[in-house]
Design a protein around this nucleic acid. Structure first.
Lengths: 151, 151
DNA sequence: CTGACTGCAAAGGGTTTGCAGTGCT
DNA sequence: AGCACTGCAAACCCTTTGCAGTCAG
């Protein structure tokens, strides 16, 4: 699911081209433009945001191509998604401080507790963002079931 | 947005009743049942999952009441949502290892880097879940703008 | 050339909302 | 008794899918 993220130094278009050739998928102007857009941004745009930006250079792109391409890039390991995957919102009775183990393949989220992780010191730079309330560690990986399946 | 999570020891129904009285919202069988359900679970059900479970005790509940109640409980600070809020999926060109500062009010997510956080030792218990790939720290709080607004 | 890819439009699934009736306070 | 709350059903939004034409390899 996330084989490698590749060298950050190589220009986006070249990186995509190499990854696409290797995976046997076609290199199209839409895909180049979409990857270049995501790679150039430090905020975390959703599909709509990418669409609006890419449309300025490629007026004919369609939103569904943006979606298809973003998931393709995810499968190629060139980008990742934030938070839980393409699922519905999940709720959590916040009765105790805990951390999450999230399976990147199926989205299964399991809690674990760790007094050591509860007390992580934050870098000072965080203060610039606002007022932190709590800190959670998110461990991303494959769950046992998905790992067995991919073997 | 998340004033307090309250004592975990108090029974769920009593906790909800106190919180509701204090906030001036009504205590209904549906709300009691929905909160009791979420509080009793360690997995992270979505609205549909809560709905199915609650329906066994309250056959007449409707899915939209479950939604309304879950967001009410979130506003009361009794439960939280997992991952980013009720938004669309966001994408991230994963070029470097970074951590996230997430505003619990507006969902704004900002990256920051911290070599110290990159190297957190994980507790051994995590190995039981599967094969970890990477670890990210998620700092939850208000962003500067939302904090200013709530003041 | 040929199959993968795109754009279009319509379907899909999760979530929200307007309304009239119900029940908590 | 009054007003918040519920259930119903329709609306909504984001995302996905089927199809015919197009283009990269």
């Amino acid at each position: 699911m996330t084989p490698e993220l590749g060298p950050a130094s190589e220009p986006p278009r070249a990186r995509f081209t190499r990854a696409a050739r290797r995976a046997g998928v076609k290199v199209t102007p839409q895909r180049l433009e979409i990857f270049a857009e995501v790679a150039s941004r430090t905020d975390h745009p959703d599909a709509e945001g990418v669409f609006r930006a890419v449309r300025e250079r490629l007026p004919a792109v369609s939103l569904d191509t943006v979606y298809r391409t973003l998931w393709l890039l995810t499968d190629l390991g060139l980008i990742t998604t934030l938070g839980t995957r393409r699922e519905s919102v999940r709720f959590d009775a916040g009765t105790s401080l805990h951390h999450h183990y999230v399976c990147t393949a199926c989205g299964l989220t399991q809690d674990f507790e760790s007094p050591a992780l509860d007390a992580i010191p934050l870098p000072e730079s965080v203060a610039a963002f606002g007022v932190p309330a709590r800190t959670q560690v998110e461990v991303l990986g494959l769950c046992a079931a998905c790992h067995a399946e991919s073997a």
